[in-house]
């Protein structure tokens, strides 16, 4: 299944490294990344494929949020369907 990772917060060093390391450890493949800085605010959106990851998705999502807390950012891992549903006819 595909999921969307969003990372937001005040820009600092190593954000992508830490988030990517977490995804790699969980066997989640990154398909696409889009990243932008607005002022000092960092916003990154990743499309990922979690097919090879055998963990429960809700638990993964909680772990992603925990990675966020560790690096002082907001990290969310959500099923892609919520975005597809809301923004496509």
């Amino acid at each position: 299944m595909k999921a969307v990772v969003t990372v937001t917060g005040t820009d600092r060093k190593g954000i992508i490294a830490q988030v990517s390391a977490f995804l790699c450890e969980k066997e989640i493949n990154i398909l696409d990344i889009s990243q932008t800085i607005m002022g000092d605010q960092f916003a990154m959106v990743m499309l990922v494929d979690a097919t090879d990851c055998k963990e429960d998705f809700a638990s993964l999502s909680a772990q992603a949020a925990e990675v966020g807390r560790r690096i002082g950012m907001s990290v969310r891992l959500q099923h892609e369907d919520i975005f597809n549903a809301m923004h496509t006819v």
């Binding site: 969307v4 969003t6 937001t8 696409d32 889009s34 932008t36 916003a43 959106v45 499309l47 969310r76 892609e80 919520i82 975005f83 809301m86 923004h87």
Partner: peptide, 12 residues
Amino acid sequence: MFNTTDVIETIE
């Protein structure tokens, strides 16, 4: 592929 603005809009 997704649209970053849409994703951020949903989050907000």
